[in-house]
């Protein structure tokens, strides 16, 4: 993990503790302190990890609310294979735990904390909804794998031949896995390349955060999602 931390923040500019699949700590970006909340090892997000994420967010909010300093930005380091699939987690009400994380993110936004997600592994389905997609801005490293379902599984469930899906995936970003597809649809703001200076990328991303949800507009501009902005506007204006 240290290689990643060094590339993102610079050597000796971070103090991040690893607790199983959970990462928590602080780093310095462009001279300011930021909070780091992350997952690794393609974590299956369960109630326990949700609670750790939510607690870390609430801690940052409450610490900064008690001082006169500017609210510190929060960087989410995202790596999740999705939600944990188990009867126990369902019984606990995992969806309720995810909703709690989302509410904590929204509260952080209201309190003036900028939030950036950096996908350093996988970002999949419900895990990504709970952890990553709620940020102001989502950035993907070159190795990021982003999806709801792989094409073979999708072919099985929808009973559409795999070969046909492969061909259609060339024309449309709407169902096939890939960070590029999510970029075209506006849900990933920036794709960082291997040759980029990720420290500079992160500083630039922080400077560009917006309070409003502009993903539908971005999807329209990038021709990946033509209808979402239009239909929502139609309903909102009716």
């Amino acid at each position: 993990m240290n290689i990643l931390f060094n590339r993102l923040f610079g050597a000796e500019q971070h103090n991040i503790a690893i607790d199983g699949d959970f990462l928590g700590g602080y780093a310095t970006v462009d001279g300011i302190e930021v909070a780091i909340i992350g997952t690794r090892n393609k974590a299956a997000i369960n109630a326990s990890i949700s609670l750790k994420v939510a607690e870390a967010i609430l801690t940052v909010i409450s610490e900064d609310a008690e001082t006169s300093r500017l609210p510190r930005p929060i960087i989410f380091l995202v790596d999740t294979q999705g939600q944990e699939l188990s009867r126990h987690e369902e019984l606990l009400g995992l969806n309720g735990y995810f909703a709690h994380v989302a509410q904590c993110c929204e509260l952080a936004r209201i309190h003036g904390h900028r939030m950036i997600s950096v996908i350093h592994g996988e970002a999949v389905s419900g895990g990504f909804l709970a952890f990553g997609l709620m940020a102001d801005r989502v950035c993907a490293l070159p190795e990021a794998q982003v999806r709801v379902m792989d094409l073979r599984a999708m072919a099985k469930v929808t009973k559409i031949p795999y070969e046909k899906l492969l061909v259609l995936a060339e024309e449309s970003p709407v169902f096939a896995p890939g960070a590029e597809n999510y970029w075209r649809m506006g849900a990933i703001h920036d794709l960082w390349s291997e040759t980029d200076d990720w420290k500079c990328c992160l500083i630039a991303a922080l400077a560009q955060t917006e309070n409003e949800d502009c993903r539908a507009r971005l999807g329209l501009e990038r021709s990946g999602r033509e209808l979402a902005a239009q239909i929502a506007a139609l309903v909102a204006a009716a």
């Binding site: 909804l129 997609l133 709620m134 709801v148 970003p173 169902f175 999510y182 993903r215």
Partner: peptide, 13 residues
Amino acid sequence: LHEANAGLIAISE
């Protein structure tokens, strides 16, 4: 699932 990426993003929105 037929438009899984669009659906996931729509739910996040």
